[in-house]
Structure formats: structure tokens, C-alpha cells
Design a protein around this nucleic acid. Structure first.
Lengths: 185, 185
DNA sequence: GGACTCATGTAAATGGTTACATGATTCA
DNA sequence: TGAATCATGTAACCATTTACATGAGTCC
């Protein structure tokens, strides 16, 4: 019924190199957190399932004194990944709790909404600052890792999104200041 | 643990007037689908649960020969809605399957990605055309329904989002044409 | 009569979050 | 020794989707 996208995300990262579940999560959180997250309670069981399906193999290894279960993608795993990548992505309009609350905003005082919007702006600024660092890192590795060109495209998305959300929140704050005013160009 | 946001979305719409489950869904699909969706399998059971909790009352009514279960929000329901609206919205970074596939885009030929991006542009254009109609409708009712000012803010978000996604997709397509080229300002 | 819309629901499966449990190693 | 990090996992719970079942009224 529902496609297990977590599986494919994990396969994608494992296609770049073997990893423990713990490191996988760290990698995901450190690279695609902008548009994709996974959590503890799912990565471990799904990796186990993938092992049963023959998409990955696992071995225990002591790296630096610590034991970790290293997962390696198999040919079947690579095939499954590429099969998934061949399919058109299905757009799923996400739920946005801030917008839902704004939609019913007339039930609250404008100061409350202004607070939400200020938070949004702060969040966007933090994202933009973070993305700027990532951008210079990625641009620096472009000659060594051509794949980074694709990562830059997803980063570009994040930067544009943060910028537009900031602009939108600022525009809303302006409009809230003067509720009598309608829309303008 | 997880807050039941469906409940509050339903309360929000019921606060504007009584409705059957079927109409509620139609209303939601026709107004906030841009950032919030509900589906069959949830609206009915949750409304039943809300009735048991005393947040809504229900009565059978035959409108135009057809029977429908009309739900009316109670004072307790209004209180629950306003309590929820008083809380800061918690940002949940959504999963974006297109971006995940773009991230691993080097595993596919650029033509595949170009197809996804073209679809994205088509989708954005369709959204923008739809939003333009909604905008004129909402602006026309502003004087009668001041609440529409808030609805326009969420529409504004949708318009800006569609525009930025279209721009981003176009920029990606350009970059895909010449893979040797790096990033530019 | 047949297709379509209105209308209410159930069932099954999966997705996803949060909290908790456990234990080893590293570092101050 | 105590806190932080590395590391793996389970349990409980709720969210979400999809498919299915059912039946009445409307329109052609």
C-alpha cells in the first residue's frame, strides 16, 4: 500500500558506503535534514528487515574499541534503489500547522500571530546562516565529488524556501499591523 | 504523545458552522488543501470520538431528501480549539520525495530528472492559476467577511511557494543542461 | 436502468513519534 | 567518578493511507 520510503532513503545512503545504523542517522541528520528525517525507532527495525530481504548484509565490527553493526548494500539493494529512483516522485502536499493556525487567526489577538511569525523569521534566518556554510563546503568539494552538484540543487531549494518563508512572514506581520487595510500589489 | 491535529482542524471548521462529515471534508479540500488534507478513513471515527468527548453534538437531519449526520461544536469544543490556537505551532520539517530523489540524482540520467522538474513546473503553474481565482474570490468577500484577511495570508503563502518552486525547478533544469558548469551567483 | 453524486462508515496495513532500556567507551 | 557520546534496540501509541462495503437519491 504505502511505499516504505525510509527503506529507499537508507539504501541511498548505503549506496555511498557501508555504515552502522547510528552513523546512518547522523549522516541523514547532517545532510538532508532540510527535507528528510528519520528517527531511531524506525531505522533499526527497517535495517533488520532489509537484511532479511537480502538488500543489505550486516557484520559486527569493533572500530576504535567500540562494537558496531556495519551494514553493506548488496547488488539486490542497489537494484531496488535504482528501481525506486526510476519512478516519478509522488507529490504529497505536506501539512503545515502554522498555516492552519493562521487560517483561524481571527480567533486570536494579532500579537499571538505576530509572535509565531517572528519565530518563523528567526528560524528562517538560522536556516539561511546554516545553509551558507554548507554551500561553501559543497562548492569546495565539487571538483573532487561531482555528485555534489546534485546536493547543491537540494541546498538551493532550502535556501529559496527559507528566503520565501521569511519574506512571507514579514509581509504578514506588516499586514497584521494595519488590519483595516486590504491586499495590495 | 502525538497531538491529534485532525481533531483541531475539524473543530476549526465546525467553529464556523455545523456540518456533516462529508461536507467538512469537501470544505477542507476546497479551502486549505494547499497545506492541509484529511481523508475519509479518519474524519468519521474522529468525529465520533469527539462526540464521545463532548466537543461536538450530532443529530440526524434530512436535507433535500437525504439523511446526513450534522455535527455542531459545543462550548467545550470551542474552548479546546482556542486552547490549541494559543499554543505555538511546532515546526515539522516535511519529507520531500522529489528532493530525496534529486539528492541521489547522479545515479540516473539527467533526462529523468529533467522530466521530474518539468512536472514540478507544470504543477506549480496549475497551482498559480488556481490560486489566482481563489484570490479574486477572497478579495471580493473581504468587506463582508473580515476573517478572509487571514485566509489571504495562507493563500499568499501558497502563491509564493508555487512561484519559488517553479523558479527553483527552472534553475535546476538549466544547470542540468551543462553538468560541467559549477555554481554561479 | 445505469452512472454519478451524496453520505457514512469499517478493515487492514503501514508509517511515524516518543519514551524507555541498556550498556560500553571516552574525556574531564 | 560522573557526564557525554557511541551504539543498539523495544514498546506503546498514534497518524495516515488505501481499499472496501453499503445504500439512497439524482439525472439522463
Amino acid at each position: 500500500m504505502q511505499p516504505n520510503r525510509t527503506k529507499y532513503a537508507l539504501l541511498g545512503f548505503l549506496s555511498r558506503g557501508e555504515s552502522s545504523a547510528y552513523r546512518l542517522q547522523e549522516t541523514i541528520a547532517g545532510s538532508v535534514a532540510n527535507f528528510w528525517r528519520e528517527n531511531d525507532g524506525r531505522v533499526y527495525p527497517i535495517l533488520a528487515k532489509m537484511e532479511a530481504e537480502g538488500l543489505v548484509t550486516a557484520r559486527e565490527e569493533a572500530t576504535g574499541g567500540r562494537k558496531a553493526k556495519i551494514h553493506t548494500i548488496t547488488d539486490a539493494g542497489l537494484a531496488a534503489l535504482d528501481e525506486w529512483l526510476a519512478e516519478d516522485p509522488v507529490p504529497r502536499p505536506p501539512r503545515n500547522e502554522l498555516l492552519l493556525k493562521m487560517f483561524f487567526g481571527y480567533r486570536r489577538d494579532p500579537a499571538t500571530l505576530d509572535g509565531w511569525l517572528k519565530d518563523k523569521i528567526t528560524e528562517s534566518d538560522a536556516d539561511l546562516a546554516r545553509f551558507a556554510k554548507v554551500r561553501s563546503r559543497l562548492e569546495g568539494m565539487l571538483s573532487d565529488v561531482p555528485d555534489a552538484a546534485y546536493w547543491l540543487m537540494t541546498l538551493d531549494y532550502g535556501e529559496r524556501r527559507a528566503a520565501f518563508e521569511k519574506d512571507w512572514a514579514s509581509a504578514c506581520r506588516e499586514r497584521l499591523k494595519d488590519p483595516s487595510r486590504g491586499e495590495e500589489a
